Computed example of a mutant assay.
Amino acid sequence: MSAGRRTLGFSWPALVALAGLAAPRVVLHDLHVVEEGQPAAVLLAVVPLICWVVAVLWRRPPRPFLTVLAIGAIHGVLLAVGHQILWDEAFGATGPRLGDFDPRVQEAILRLAAVFSSLVTGVLTGVVTGAVAVVLSRVVIGPRRATERQVEKARRGP
Rank of each mutant, 00 (worst) to 15 (best):
M1Q: 08
S11C: 11
P13Q: 09
L15V: 05
G20T: 12
A22P: 03
R25N: 14
D30S: 14
H32G: 05
V34N: 04
E35F: 12
A41H: 13
V42M: 14
L43K: 04
V47K: 05
V47Q: 13
L57Y: 08
R60C: 12
P64Y: 00
F65R: 01
F65T: 03
L66G: 12
L66H: 15
L66R: 15
T67W: 04
V68R: 00
A70Q: 00
A73I: 13
L79S: 13
V81M: 11
H83A: 11
Q84K: 05
Q84N: 07
L86F: 15
E89F: 15
E89V: 14
A90C: 06
F91K: 04
G92F: 09
T94P: 00
P96Y: 07
R97A: 15
G99D: 06
D100I: 10
F101E: 10
D102V: 02
V105K: 02
E107H: 02
I109C: 07
L110D: 11
F116G: 12
S117I: 00
S118E: 08
L124H: 07
L124T: 11
T129K: 02
G130H: 06
G130P: 03
G130F: 10
V132E: 07
S137T: 08
V139Q: 13
V140A: 11
I141N: 15
A146L: 15
E148V: 10
R149G: 01
